[in-house]
Design a protein around this nucleic acid. Structure first.
Lengths: 200, 200
DNA sequence: GCCCTATGTTACCACTTGGTATAGAAAATT
DNA sequence: AATTTTCTATACCAAGTGGTAACATAGGGC
């Protein structure tokens, strides 16, 4: 079986580049020209390797979830740290990322989720974005409900609300980071919300 | 001096309609076709009455600041209410608006400010959006610095940080509202952040 | 060597974008 | 009523959108 000519570009690198473009410009705001330029591949090669714009967006989004969001979640389950310490580390790890990525500040998901109500996002991409939103809130709520320290602090009483509260603050830091806020400025907000829900 | 034919559409109504379109779709996401449809005027009439897309956007943004943001600010200076009461009312008034406007959930400014880093926003519009951001933070910081009750509670020590903290949370509720969160769910977050900075 | 498959490149497609020229219609001043 | 001024409406423009057809090119299996 003949296997044909090998592609000249690096698939993984190209997908990363696409991820950063969507992170900076959102789905509708990103044009194929943008992608061609930043991925450094010409158009038919992109279509052959990744499918159409929606397919590429879905792959880029899944990559973001995998390499950018997942690592933060692990920090919530580190052994030998207090509940507050784990949440603080988790949240500041996210804030760090929101502030540090040049030209792609804030959160990929927050940006693209805000496009949903604008219209123009294809169905499958919409479903993925909506399902991604449920992951951290569910995770936080589970911890608040079941962690012994959380139960002791009474946080299990309002597990759902406490979860939503932290998530809301992280969306806020994402928006602030996108406008140029610094990590140091946002740390105070993280500390305040943790204190605010009674996590001391 | 002949004054000519009178316009058939209502200028104020049309500008309001434009405001809601930008509120829903942002600057780049809004096309002239969108505006024509929702303002119910044909294209040359829009250009004659409002100038080009950027001019119209600036007018719509100024209108948003005037009729949508300004009323919330007044609540911070109501007589005979505690500092916490005034901030609670102010913030919930904003959250109310973020949740209730159909098809234009969230905050006009948060949405459009997030487009700045994407590029494609004209200079004058960019300046307006950036200057709008400074208004509430400056206002909060002034209150935390000078209000007797704030000084008594020690909030004047971190006036700047406390200000940024509340503003960050409001950007978070805006993002949450845009994704469909309800007023009741977000009230808990507002209460928590007020408690978190020590405003009891 | 040949063939087959997959690649990169150029050119093109229909459609939408922001913006305008032009012509006809309506109202106020003379 | 005539004129002037501003309005609305149809049609159009160049440039950009997402997406493809066609063709030359490169590499592995036989």
């Amino acid at each position: 079986m003949a296997s044909g000519r090998r592609r000249e570009f690096d698939y993984e690198l190209a997908l990363n580049a696409a991820m950063y473009v969507f992170w900076q410009k959102g789905y509708s705001g990103t044009s194929m020209s943008d992608l061609i330029e930043r991925m450094n591949i010409n158009k038919p090669s992109i279509y052959r390797a990744f499918g159409n714009k929606e397919d590429l967006f879905i792959k880029a989004t899944e990559r973001y979830l995998e390499i950018k969001m997942k690592p933060h979640m692990a920090l919530l389950f580190e052994e030998g740290a207090t509940l507050k310490g784990r949440f603080k580390k988790h949240m500041m790890s996210i804030v760090d990322m929101q502030c540090s990525t040049p030209d792609a500040k804030g959160c990929y998901l927050v940006l693209c989720q805000s496009e949903l109500i604008s219209g123009g996002i294809p169905m499958q991409a919409e479903l993925l974005l909506k399902s991604a939103e449920a992951i951290p809130t569910k995770c936080y709520a589970d911890i608040f409900s079941n962690d012994p320290e959380a139960i002791l602090l009474g946080l299990s009483q309002n597990a759902q609300s406490n979860s939503l509260c932290l998530y809301t603050m992280l969306k806020g830091t994402a928006a602030m980071a996108r406008s140029g806020a610094l990590r140091a400025e946002l740390e105070y907000s993280v500390d305040s919300i943790l204190a605010g829900i009674g996590l001391d």
